[in-house]
Structures are given as structure tokens and as C-alpha cells.
């Protein structure tokens, strides 16, 4: 199937600052793609170019195979949910959701029916007469979503849709968004800086940094095989090692084994000294110093079960090891 949208060598400059740097990306049809990366890496800028709110300095944006680089937003037929929700404060919930439908010159009864259906889908049917200001953050977010979905957009674009919600609601809404995506079959592009959110929700994950794409893949691919140190770091790999052959590799703290695990299967074995420990209830975070294969002293972080680390105090000498499957080679 041809991609729902494509970025081809797309660059966005603001003055002499390059916010998005020659990115190439295909957004698969009917899937949920996340743009993930730290603040300022160009996620919003990319999304805004796709939506038509800003024009690339160079490059091409195709939507369903058609060059849409210079098409104004109102001609793109995309649904966008803004981080601030951007609801129309002077209109009721139903009027907000019906705004795009009215512009499509649908008969009034059809608009009303579509509005009701969409509010039903996001679970807000009972609030259709309220003004946005009267609603909670979570409800406003659903209205913004309903407003974007109501027009049956060719793509649904979400800019950090969950970041203004409280922690519990945010986790609930992940499932909710996935359900809505599955029910509607929409192609979704979601911007986030929360790796848990991206891992949980994505079909395709796109990691960005400094306006460039660092890695693209399914959550499993990206999480288990980070392409480089930045991606690994961003996804919570804390330990970076170099061996005699100057190959770089990384291990997650929870995959470092402390003490004697000498069954010979370990791909990594280093002598280490405990620097400090931090008790966190279920687990114990142990900071260690070790000398890696290249002869460099490295700071390591091991996440062990609280019970297993009982005897560890600063200065304790121990060994660290990791299974071959957990020692991930990365580009420098």
C-alpha cells in the first residue's frame, strides 16, 4: 500500500537555525506513527509542515501520493489536535465538533447526526451544549479530538495530545486513543516526548534529534536494537561500554547482573566497585565504577531487586555481567 504521507528531503529553517534538517519519512496508511524526541528536536515543526501551517524551506511533502508542499491547510483535509486544544471558546461543544462539517455544506440534520456520533465515540455525548471553558482538561482534549475526527480526515495529527493531562488520565487515554484509531481506521501521526507513550501506542516509531531522524522502526525494533547512543540513552539504556576491538555496546540497568553469575554464557564480565546505592522500594539502584574492555573507567548503573542488593555498601567489590542478548551493539 502506498504511504498516507511522505516527507522527501524536507528542511525547515528559521533564519539561520535549521529546525528540521532534510528528513525523509513515510507515514504508513492506517497505522499510528509517533514522532518521538526531546524538546526542540523539530517534532512540532514537522507536524505543522505536514498540516500546511508552515511551508518547508526545501523538500517535498506528499499526501496520498500528491505533492502538497504548498497546499494551504484548508485544502488538505487533515485533522489536527493542538497541544493547547485550540477549541473555539465562543462555541458550544457540539458547534466546535460541527464546525468542519458545516463548512462542507452538509445538510443540518446530517451535521447534527455526525456530531452526535463523534461525541459518542469520544464519550462526551452528554456535554454537547456546554462551552469549552466549563470542561475539564481531559474533556477538552476529547472535544478537540472529536472536532478533528468529525471531518473524516485523511490523516489525524496529534501534537502532544496527552501532555496536559494528569498522569492517571494520560495512561488511560493511551488505550482510548488506540481504541478510537482501531474503530475509525484512521492514519494517525502523534507527536510526543514521552518514550513510554510512544512504545505503548506506536505501530511505527520515529526518533528525532536536532531536526534529524535518528531511527525509524516498530517499538520492539527500536527498543531492543537502538541504532546509536542517542536513541539508547533516550530509551533508558544507561551503561555504555567499549571493548578491545573498539566496538561500542550498551546495556540497560535492569539487565546488569551483580555478583557471581559465572555460568559462562555472559557476554560481559567486569570487576566493579560499588559507588552508591539508592533504595526505591521494589528495586535498588546501584552505581558502580568498572574498567571496560578498552581500559577506560566507566560509571555503571544497575537496577537490582531490593532483596538481592542487601549486602552492597559503597566500596564493596563485585562483578557485573550481562547476557549476550542484552548487550546491544550501537554506533558510536
Amino acid at each position: 500500500m502506498s504511504p498516507a504521507a511522505e516527507f522527501i528531503g524536507v528542511t525547515q529553517r528559521f533564519g539561520d537555525f535549521t529546525a528540521v534538517d532534510a528528513i525523509d519519512l513515510e507515514i504508513p496508511e492506517g497505522k499510528l506513527t509517533t514522532l518521538l524526541g526531546p524538546s526542540g528536536c523539530g517534532k512540532t515543526t514537522s507536524l505543522r509542515m505536514l498540516a500546511g501551517y508552515s511551508r518547508p524551506t526545501s523538500g517535498t511533502i506528499r499526501i496520498h501520493g500528491v505533492d502538497s508542499t504548498t497546499l494551504p491547510p484548508e485544502k488538505r483535509g487533515l485533522g489536527m489536535v493542538f497541544q493547547s486544544y485550540a477549541l473555539f471558546p465562543h462555541l458550544t461543544v457540539a458547534e466546535n465538533v460541527g464546525y468542519g462539517l458545516k463548512l462542507r455544506k452538509l445538510p443540518r440534520a446530517a451535521v447534527q447526526q455526525k456530531v452526535e456520533e463523534t461525541l459518542e465515540l469520544v464519550g462526551l455525548a452528554h456535554l454537547h451544549k456546554s462551552k469549552p471553558k466549563k470542561l475539564s482538561g481531559g474533556q477538552q482534549q476529547r472535544v478537540a479530538l472529536a472536532r478533528a475526527i468529525a471531518i473524516r480526515p485523511r490523516l489525524l495529527l496529534l501534537d502532544e495530545p496527552l501532555s496536559n493531562l494528569d498522569a492517571r488520565l494520560r495512561v488511560q487515554m493511551r488505550t482510548e486513543l488506540r481504541r478510537i484509531q482501531a474503530e475509525t481506521g484512521l492514519t494517525v501521526v502523534l507527536v510526543t516526548h514521552d518514550q513510554d507513550e510512544a512504545l505503548e501506542m506506536s505501530d511505527l516509531m520515529v526518533l528525532m534529534r536536532g531536526g534529524k531522524i535518528m531511527q525509524t522502526g516498530t517499538p520492539r525494533e527500536v527498543f531492543s536494537r537502538p541504532a546509536n547512543r542517542f536513541v539508547a540513552d533516550f530509551l533508558g539504556y544507561e551503561n555504555f561500554l567499549t571493548d578491545q576491538t573498539h566496538t561500542f555496546s550498551t546495556v540497560r540497568p535492569e539487565h546488569l547482573i551483580l555478583g557471581a553469575a559465572s555460568d559462562g554464557s555472559a557476554a560481559l564480565r567486569l570487576d566493579a566497585t560499588v559507588v552508591s546505592t539508592a533504595y526505591r522500594g521494589v528495586d535498588l539502584l546501584v552505581t558502580l565504577d568498572a574498567v571496560d574492555g578498552a581500559g577506560e573507567t566507566v560509571r555503571l548503573l544497575a537496577d537490582v531487586r531490593a532483596g538481592d542488593g542487601a549486602g552492597l555498601t559503597p566500596g564493596t567489590r563485585t562483578t557485573v555481567s550481562a547476557a549476550a542478548a542484552h548487550l546491544v551493539p550501537i554506533a558510536a
Partner: peptide, 19 residues
Amino acid sequence: ADPAVEEAARGLGAGPVRA
């Protein structure tokens, strides 16, 4: 006023004048 509000209207299909 949040400039995104006018942008939202554009995205939903309103031209600049109507938005």
C-alpha cells in the same frame, strides 16, 4: 488569544477570511 485557534479553523476547512 491562542493563534492555534485560527489555525484550527483553517485546518477544518475554513479559508483565511472565513476563519
